[in-house]
């Protein structure tokens, strides 16, 4: 029964239209328009209300002022809910990582993220690959018997065998050697 439910869930993801910058042009407009056609994957029903959506596509830069709103939108969504972070800004802060007084360094500092799609911005094909990864994750993933399984993040374009915690550890080591304050002001 879980399998059927998960199959149904994975093929009818309703994304929330949350676009704060240029990534929204690619993943919401270009991907949704007729050339690339998001409807092929059953995810074309973009909703302007978090109450009716179950996929939050963080498309764009998150600044400090936007962060509480993003958290609120995520909390308003009904379970089960999934998050894709697209583009370098939503993954790590991207070009605004250093010397920025406002940009939050990655959406995963605020909300849990299931799939990361790299690019600046990613092409619609890249976004589709991330979406298919998420569908795969939903199909294999969370069931009544295995709850919270999908909290482990999946990276869309990484070689197998490499995990997010390894990368984070590497970055942290590298940054700690060159800056005295440590990564993200020592908060992680």
């Amino acid at each position: 029964m879980d399998k059927i439910i998960n199959w149904a869930r994975s093929n009818s993801l309703w994304p929330l239209t949350f676009g704060t910058s240029c990534c929204a042009i690619e993943v919401m407009m270009a991907a949704g328009a007729s050339r690339h056609d998001l409807a092929r994957f059953g995810a074309e029903v973009a909703r302007p209300s978090p109450r009716q959506a179950d996929l939050l596509v963080v498309a764009g830069t998150i600044v400090k002022k936007m962060a509480p709103r993003l958290k609120m939108l995520y909390e308003q969504m009904c379970e089960p809910k999934y998050v894709i972070a697209t583009g370098s800004c939503a993954i790590s802060g991207g070009p605004f990582m250093y010397h920025s007084y406002t940009t939050v360094r990655g959406a995963d500092e605020i909300i849990p993220v299931d799939v990361y799609v790299p690019g600046c911005p990613p092409r619609p094909e890249g976004f589709f690959y991330g979406l298919l990864m998420l569908q795969k994750l939903i199909r294999e993933g969370e069931t009544v018997r295995k709850p919270r399984m999908r909290k482990k993040p999946v990276l869309a374009a990484l070689p197998p065998g490499l995990t997010l915690s390894q990368i984070q550890e590497e970055i942290r080591m590298e940054l700690e050697t060159v800056t005295k304050r440590g990564l993200f002001g020592g908060r992680i």
Binding site: Y98, Y101, F184
Partner: peptide, 22 residues
Amino acid sequence: DDDWEGFPLRKDYKDDFMLERP
């Protein structure tokens, strides 16, 4: 934000949130 301290586009602006480029 209304309670922000300092003026960020001044060249000598610094705060705890900013990361220096290694």
